Simulated assay, not measured.
Amino acid sequence: MLGNGLKFLGTACLMGLLLAAVPALAGDVIKIAVPSPYTGSAAGFGENVKAGVTLKVEEINAAGGINGKKVEAVYLDEQCEPREAATVSTKIANDKDIVGIVGHLCSSAHLAALPTYVREGIAAISPTATNVTITTKNKDDKGKVWSFRNVYRDDFQGKFLADYVQKVMGLKKVAVFYENNDYGIGLKDAFVSQAKKIGLTIVGEEAYMKGAQDFTPQLTKMKGEPLRRMRRHMQMIFQDPYASLNPRMTVGNIVGEPLEVHNIL
């Protein structure tokens, strides 16, 4: 389900970008960069974006292209890593045949590449980067916007999750574990802000690094009986969105599993 959604978003992003870029096109080929993670833990999501873009490119070219010009997608692997994304953005800027960008997938990668796109005047549209600060960094000195997205922002997601925890799950206390990157921090901040507004008690905010499997350092702050009692209230954990969700389980099963373990259901 998520894969199909990313394919659709990749297709929609490509169409929006091409429509915007048509007036400035030159040469026989319309070249679009698609920077995304094609290796590493998020590679599956990058491949879904690639599949959506590939589908649309083939469809456009089969219909004769755009004003007689064929569309070509250039896929660049940045592994959802800011350092790699910054390097990739320089490669894109140095290729004067590239007229636009579909990407990046991760907020941290997009933010790392964004200064280059704004400085060089290359339009980029992301199907998935949700960090709020992207909106404050996407304009050049003249106020022209160079970065767009067709996805909701973290402030919307965080508010929704806090309301869900209170109104649907009926919880009063929550602990927040979040990945220590732009996506995790932005989502955590939005969740905590809304949680406090609606009266939820935040019993802890603990960060972890990407790829972490041992959360002992975070959990040792709550020991013994207090920890045992608190586990019944720790139902919402912000995990790595690319590696932690079991695709064989429905969202209902994922949310319901800890409730069943603690005999709340």
Rank of each mutant, 00 (worst) to 15 (best):
M169P: 04
A33D: 03
G252F: 00
Y164C: 04
M230T: 11
N4I: 11
G100R: 05
S244W: 10
I122L: 14
A123S: 09
F238D: 00
S36P: 00
V102E: 03
V168C: 04
L9T: 03
S89V: 12
I185C: 00
G121S: 14
Y75I: 08
K197A: 15
F238T: 07
N4M: 12
F45R: 00
K159M: 10
A42Q: 06
K70H: 02
F148N: 01
T201Q: 03
I264R: 15
E179G: 04
A195E: 09
I202V: 15
A113N: 08
L265S: 12
Q194S: 12
L111G: 05
V174A: 14
P37S: 12
S147Y: 12
V29G: 05
E206Q: 15
A112N: 01
L19Q: 15
K31D: 01
V132N: 14
E260P: 00
Y75L: 08
K31G: 02
S107C: 01
A113G: 04
D140W: 02
Q166N: 06
A93M: 07
R248Y: 03
V29W: 01
Y75P: 06
F160P: 01
D240G: 07
F148Q: 07
Q235S: 11
A51N: 08
G103T: 01
S89H: 11
G46C: 09
F191H: 09
L227C: 10
L219R: 12
R83E: 14
N180C: 05
G65C: 09
P241Q: 11
V165K: 03
T90N: 13
D155M: 06
L2C: 05
S126H: 05
A124R: 01
V29R: 13
R231M: 15
K188E: 04
D189P: 06
V192Y: 05
M209K: 15
I134H: 12
A21R: 12
I264T: 12
R232A: 15
F215Y: 12
N67C: 05
A20N: 10
L14W: 06
Q79T: 04
F177K: 06
K69D: 08
M169H: 02
G5N: 10
A113R: 07
A63E: 11
V251W: 06
T250F: 01
Y164I: 02
L111V: 04
K144R: 12
V53P: 11
Q213R: 14
A243H: 02
V261P: 04
E260Y: 05
G170N: 10
H110V: 03
L6P: 02
Y242K: 00
K142L: 08
M230G: 14
L17T: 08
L245T: 13
N67R: 11
C106H: 05
K31M: 03
A124L: 06
A162N: 09
M230K: 12
S193F: 09
G170K: 04
L9I: 01
I92D: 02
L19M: 08
I66W: 06
K69A: 10
G170P: 11
T116D: 06
E78R: 07
Y183G: 10
A85R: 10
V34E: 11
L259N: 04
F238I: 13
P35Q: 08
G27A: 01
Q79F: 08
L219F: 14
P82K: 08
K56Y: 12
K50I: 00
V192K: 00
G64N: 13
K188D: 01
K167I: 00
G44Q: 13
R149F: 07
I125V: 14
V88F: 09
G3P: 00
A113W: 04
A113D: 07
M209Y: 05
T130A: 15
L18N: 06
G103S: 02
E120D: 13
